[in-house]
Amino acid sequence: MTRWIRDYGVYAAVLALLVFNVLFTPYFLDAANFRTQLVQVSPIVIISLGMALVIGTKGIDLSVGSVMALAAALTALYLGYGAAVALVVALIGGAVAGAAGGTLVAYVGIQPIVATLALLVGVRGLANVLVPQLVEFRNPDLIALGSSSLFGVPLIVIIAAALTLVVAFLVRRTTFGRQVVAIGGNRAASELSGLPVKRVLVLVYVISGLLAALAGVLATARLQASDPTSLGMFIELSAITAVVVGGTPLSGGRIRVASTVMGALLMQLLSATLIKHNLPQSWTQMVQAVIILAAVYVTRERVKR
């Protein structure tokens, strides 16, 4: 039973929330409403994908919110060269931050939570130094990235969906993906089996940094302003929640990509439901806490077995 909850509980919960909303929330079935929910959840989905990889190695990446802010800052700084250049620079920034975290973890041997906590503080600081206050912009390409649609589906949602497929492929079908899971499952055994453990670890954090930076650019494009001071605050917690609620254990050795996306959707729907019914935000937080505990409880069962 707990096994079923672990594997399909998040799908059931999303379904239950959808049914509730269809019945009790006015205008919920509007296409525009689904667009809103998907657009809002997309940056979290993108970050959660990287987080799932990192957690699969038994690590954690607390720096993702700050990397978003760094990407926002770099976007504002380089927008003069055009949106494409700004995007590339922002992604490079994210990759460098990820490489720094990965190196600290893999080569220096610092615990992931400590290494990325240092980055959480440092990278946010760097972003604030680069762009001390909110900057608005009018670059039409960048605004289009945040607001245009293809066949009625917002570009941001298409990007998030495509990345989900890419990461799922990476996990299931590539040497790299198998190695990530093996390292999380048993690092000593992976080392003895000749796996390039350190390289894989660094790469995982680089991917997480890249995805966080992309999410930062997309959120910035959507806001039509670069706001490194508050962009991505506490988003690492949302991403970790999505991964855990999706049934990926924090103890590593297992990655559930589709369920992670569902976990993010569940949290988005939950918060939307409470907002639409005009309940205070503190309620959202309390319900979230209950769901996280439930998720951790059912994944714990697996570890015990």
Partner: peptide, 23 residues
């Protein structure tokens, strides 16, 4: 401690070290 990857299948455990040559 140093051999099996407990959460992975028999198949994935066998293939682990030989992966590069199987890809």
């Amino acid at each position: 401690a140093e051999g099996i990857i407990p959460g992975l299948s028999v198949r994935d455990n066998i293939a682990l070290a030989a992966l590069p040559s199987l890809a």
